[in-house]
């Protein structure tokens, strides 16, 4: 089976929920009192997209300023960037834009960009509107999604709001599915030289496929059709 191995870097201001989002994805758990990330944490996860296995090598970076000098190490060879901000913090949105600038200035290879507004369970305290986030994401060629790493569910208000919102918000899993699909299409275009593509799993060096003892290694099956839309809708919300 065709295999794509892509590096994903998770960037964003400290405390926006980068680690929580990744943990929600790989373990489906949430810890309120999660300790700040030390340096950067590495996770791997496989997603099956139709007849291809996409292995995501996820680098969850620490947002603290003192680790800033380390960031290039993680985004330099990345094929996808997950840019997270906290919808209740304008500062975190601005900081996220800073990361985008840094990526644009330092990474030449094409990258799958996904912007995520986290903590929508705190919608009452929202400081960054969907419109603004969407406009911005469009302008940099990124997808935009919202989630709550805490509840991993839509708020009731959102459900009532509109179907469109449901497309925008589909849970943490969708974020990573989107990345996997993005990587797959990137591999098809043959433009990203650091993205590794193997015709079958056996050819891939073991280090790139084997799970680490502590990382989660289930394969998830998804189909492109089931989630590929959601970007082309006109974005307007209550």
């Amino acid at each position: 089976m065709k295999t794509v191995v892509g590096k994903v870097v998770v960037l964003g201001y400290q405390g926006v929920g980068k680690t929580s989002t990744v943990i929600r994805y790989v373990e489906n758990t949430f810890t309120k009192q999660i300790a700040p990330t030390v340096g950067a944490s590495f996770f791997t996860r496989k997603i099956r997209v139709e007849d291809t296995v996409v292995t995501l090598q996820i680098w969850d970076t620490a947002g603290q300023e003192r680790f800033k000098a380390m960031a290039p190490m993680f985004y330099r060879n990345a094929n996808a960037a997950l840019l997270i901000f906290d919808i209740t913090s304008k500062t975190s949105f601005e900081s996220m834009k800073g990361w985008v600038q840094e990526l644009k200035g330092n990474v030449e290879e094409p990258m799958v960009l996904v912007v995520v507004g986290n903590k929508i369970d705190l919608a009452a305290k929202r400081e960054v509107s969907r419109d603004e986030a969407l406009q911005y994401s469009k302008s940099i060629g990124a997808s935009y999604l919202e989630c709550s790493a805490m509840t991993d569910q839509c708020t009731l208000a959102d459900k009532i709001c509109a179907e469109i919102v449901l497309l925008l918000f589909q849970g943490v899993g969708v974020i990573f599915d989107k990345i996997a699909i993005g990587l797959l299409s990137l591999s098809g275009q043959n433009v990203a030289h650091t993205l590794k593509v193997y015709d079958n799993e056996i050819m891939a060096p073991s280090s790139e496929l084997e799970a680490t003892d502590t990382a989660n290694e289930e394969t998830v099956n998804i189909s492109i059709k089931s989630i590929a839309h959601g970007r082309s809708v006109g974005w307007k919300c209550c």
């Binding site: 680690t19 373990e27 700040p36 944490s41 590495f42 996770f43 502590t214 990382a215």
Partner: peptide, 17 residues
Amino acid sequence: NLVQASESLKNSESWTP
């Protein structure tokens, strides 16, 4: 101290200066 105080190290492999 670092190891004891950082629960987050348990979930994954980390790389830290």
